[in-house]
Amino acid sequence: MIADSLAAATERMTKAVEAAKDDFSTVRTGRANPQLFQRLLVDYYGTPTPLAQLASLQVPEARMIVITPYDKAALKDIEKAIVAAPNLGATPNNDGQIIRATMPELNEERRREYVKLVRAKAEDARVSIRNIRRKTKDELDALKTEVGDDDVARAEKELETITKKHIDQVDDALSRKEAELLEV
């Protein structure tokens, strides 16, 4: 029972870390990154569709991404979605076959804003991990009558170790992303 609770907590915390890393990848840096466009929704025949399902994405240069739609009729819709995307700032260039989206250089102020955004996302991930810890601790406390205080105390220490490990992983990912954002 204790092992099941700890295993479930570890799994949920790992998913929280992965979600944080995924969130970090959507924050743009000085380079073009296909993941910036992965969550971009395009109004395709009246249905919001992720861009990744409508086109292939390549990065031929550091600040340019080439979008090749599978259906040429979607070119204008993709272009509209790129222009309307908040925090992207890409300038799409449509030549009738493909779209070349150029990413502007980031100035110092914009970099600082992105660092704040990434820190907020990291804090959300930490809060999520702590909530998992709290819920698991409550589950362990409920088991005290069945397994005994010593086993629960050991499990709580192990839970704290697991929690610290996952929070450290979020902090490591945050420091890497901050370094990437502040790199000129």
Rank of each mutant, 00 (worst) to 15 (best):
Q169F: 03
L174Q: 11
Q58G: 07
R134S: 12
A81S: 12
E158L: 13
I67W: 08
I132D: 06
S128H: 07
T161N: 11
I82K: 08
E61A: 12
V170C: 03
Y70Q: 05
L174M: 08
S128Q: 11
R119L: 00
I132Y: 02
N93A: 11
E108T: 04
D138F: 13
L57I: 14
A101I: 06
E139Q: 15
I65D: 03
G96R: 04
E108C: 00
D150N: 13
A125Y: 02
N131T: 05
T161S: 14
R100S: 10
N94V: 04
E61V: 05
L159I: 04
V115C: 02
R110T: 09
D171Q: 08
K164G: 06
L57R: 08
E139W: 09
N93V: 01
N107I: 05
M103L: 15
D71R: 00
A142Y: 07
A142N: 15
E158A: 13
T145W: 08
D172S: 12
S128T: 13
R130K: 13
E108P: 01
V127R: 01
A142T: 11
L57E: 11
V118T: 10
K137I: 12
A101M: 04
I162M: 10
D171W: 09
E123F: 07
V118G: 03
I65R: 04
L88Y: 08
D95L: 05
A90K: 00
G96D: 02
Y114W: 13
S128R: 10
Q97K: 13
E160F: 14
I167L: 06
V127A: 02
I99S: 10
A101T: 05
A155K: 12
P92V: 04
V83K: 13
A74L: 08
K116V: 03
V152L: 12
M64R: 15
G89M: 11
Y70F: 15
Q58W: 07
L75T: 06
T163Y: 05
A81M: 08
E113C: 03
E105M: 09
K165D: 15
K137C: 05
N107M: 02
V115K: 04
Q169E: 11
V115A: 00
D172G: 02
D150V: 15
D138Q: 14
E105A: 12
E160T: 14
A153Q: 12
A101E: 07
L117Q: 14
T68A: 09
R63D: 12
L174N: 09
D172C: 00
P92Y: 04
T91S: 13
T68I: 09
T102A: 15
V170N: 07
A74N: 03
A125H: 11
R133Y: 15
T145F: 11
R134A: 14
V115Q: 00
R133F: 11
R100Q: 11
G89Q: 08
